[in-house]
Design a protein around this nucleic acid. Structure first.
Lengths: 132, 132
DNA sequence: TATATTTTGCAACACTGTTGCAAAATATAA
DNA sequence: TTATATTTTGCAACAGTGTTGCAAAATATA
């Protein structure tokens, strides 16, 4: 799937940064922070523009936000027809965040009157690479 | 259990703010943000001192940090002999965070070579009160 | 082409948390 | 008790992440 198809599908016009952002996230095998995304962008891209684009993508549900801690927030592309509700693994050594698509989220028993909109599970530990 | 017993048990000397912070968290039926804690403290308490105390409590494992999103981080007291590994519910309307102690965390299947140190689950939705 | 709308870039700001350093408080020793 | 050392606090300043207002640039529409 092309980056621009993503934009069209979600009713967004094609601007340079939007196409680039989709491409970066498509190519990435992990969730990326805004800092990491910036490193892939041309130097002259404004930080504010990137933040606004990320926010737009969130609202239009092109991307999913993963809050690792106060200092680390990462984003990954939501691939159509793919299970989006799965845990994420955060390596505390290299700070990489990867999806764990094969692990289903648990059904949680909630008290009467509570309703759920979404569920985030972050498993922290050390990844394969850092464990070597 | 008295607030000061907490401090002694963890090898911390008793200063005004420490005793007060333990008391506030003991009385709270929910996890509190530093802003919310500040509201319970005397006006002349410095923000830095509070942050430093929170950090100290975290290191000494008196409290547990729950990162809801970039803007909201909450803290709750770790009660000795109580299960600390349970999901938390974040109400997106009133922003309250409560423990779900009766819901066990799922065992997640991790790829080979990964090791886990801890696991955070935040369930977002609307609480009983806000659903009325 | 002319006009309206959207997107961008800049400056400035808000919020959360941190660091350095000196003053105050507390603990320890004489 | 007094003197000394250690810990804790308060202040100022800073760092990182994200936001807002506004004008200029780019894009879409008539």
């Amino acid at each position: 799937m092309e980056a621009n198809d993503f934009l069209s599908e979600f009713g967004l016009s094609r601007t340079a940064i939007r196409t680039k952002l989709v491409q970066i996230l498509m190519d990435a095998n992990e969730a990326l922070s805004s800092k990491e995304i910036e490193a892939f962008l041309d130097d002259n891209i404004d930080r504010v523009t990137l933040y606004r684009t990320i926010k737009l993508f969130e609202e239009k549900k092109l991307i999913h936000k993963i809050v690792v801690d106060e200092q680390i927030t990462k984003y990954r592309l939501i691939k159509p027809n793919k299970n989006t509700e799965h845990p994420h693994f955060h390596c505390v050594r290299c700070d990489k965040v990867v999806c764990l698509p094969d692990t289903p989220l648990p059904c949680c028993d909630l008290p009467e009157g509570f309703s759920v909109s979404n569920q985030n599970t972050i498993i922290e530990g050390t990844c394969q690479k850092c464990n070597k």
